[in-house]
């Protein structure tokens, strides 16, 4: 190593103040200051943990029915959130229901994130005819409202958790691919990509080092916003009998089966809906917070 001059032309060049921080640590720091986002993360974490450790957390058995204590109100001793139309403990079923609901809400988005980002980055980076071919095909799916598309595919594949995940994945690939494609196209035209090409780097290296790092962030934000939609669609499919089948506990399905009790026990009947609402709004607000935290002013 040669001697390191800190000066050039007799002048000291001052470094930036403060510790060196990577982009993501900056984002994290800003996110921590966003109170709404933090509250949302805490709520989501609690619900997720409760779902994962449902057998430990839940007070009872989600499948034990009793014709004697059907539709008890909230606050009934032993059943803090009442019972459903078959006398099952609501609290237990809500905790267990989170497992399937979160699973069917999040997994399709993760799948679509992987597939959509791949398609979008590939299309955006290739440009030209390849881009046209991929994006126009994707636009075909765009022509249908997402709810109809999900119902149609689920209907064609048949009811079941696996099929509902497949159909939701298909629903979410186009919008994610589109966002990934537009961000990739923007990034691809920046000078640093040209500089990398001028260094002799191949397409794969450029995508890995220069494109993905700049594309994944915005696409991730977009995808977290989709989780709420996915939750609602998954619940909707169960509600229509296309997703989970009874007697499984799942919020959308519970909403459906409790529908008949809406006059007898309106509060209890609304509980699964409240869960869907809470989780999806938390995902949405978290996504907003993440978006503004990542929007670094330069």
């Amino acid at each position: 190593m040669t001697e390191i001059p800190g000066t050039i032309a007799g002048a000291t060049i001052e470094g930036p103040a403060g510790p060196a921080r990577g982009y993501w640590s900056n984002v994290l720091r800003r996110l921590r200051r966003d109170r709404v986002a933090v509250v949302c993360i805490v709520i989501l974490a609690l619900i997720l943990l409760a779902a994962i450790f449902a057998p430990l957390v839940a007070p009872g058995d989600p499948f034990r029915t009793s014709m004697l204590r059907r539709l008890r109100p909230i606050g009934t001793p032993g059943f803090p959130l009442g019972t459903d139309e078959l006398g099952r403990d609501m609290l237990t079923r809500l905790v267990f229901g989170g497992r399937l609901s979160l699973f069917t809400g999040i997994v399709p988005v993760i799948n679509a994130f992987v597939i959509g980002t791949f398609l979008g980055v590939f299309a955006g980076f290739s440009g030209g005819r390849t881009n046209m071919a991929i994006m126009r095909t994707i636009d075909v799916f765009y022509a249908f409202p997402s709810v109809l598309l999900a119902i149609a595919i689920s209907g064609a594949l048949g009811a079941g958790i696996f099929n509902s995940i497949v159909s939701l994945t298909i629903v979410f690939v186009p919008p994610i691919a589109r966002v990934a494609e537009s961000v990739t196209t923007q990034v691809r035209n920046l000078d640093f990509v040209d500089a990398a090409r001028a260094s002799g780097a191949g397409a794969f290296t450029i995508i890995r080092v220069h494109i993905l790092g700049n594309v994944l962030g915005p696409v991730f934000v977009y995808a977290t916003g989709l989780v709420s939609v996915s939750m609602i669609l998954a619940s909707g499919l169960s509600f229509l009998g296309l997703g989970t089948k009874p007697p499984e506990a799942e919020w959308g399905l519970m909403l459906n089966t409790l529908r008949t009790a809406i006059y007898a026990q309106p509060v209890v009947a609304a509980l699964p809906g409240a869960m869907i609402f809470t989780v999806s709004i938390c995902f949405n607000l978290f996504s907003d917070g993440l978006r503004s935290a990542m929007d670094v002013k330069l």
Partner: peptide, 14 residues
Amino acid sequence: MVFQDSFASLNPRL
């Protein structure tokens, strides 16, 4: 090559 836009020619994530 050195480009005009000093910011656009550096990858913000690196």
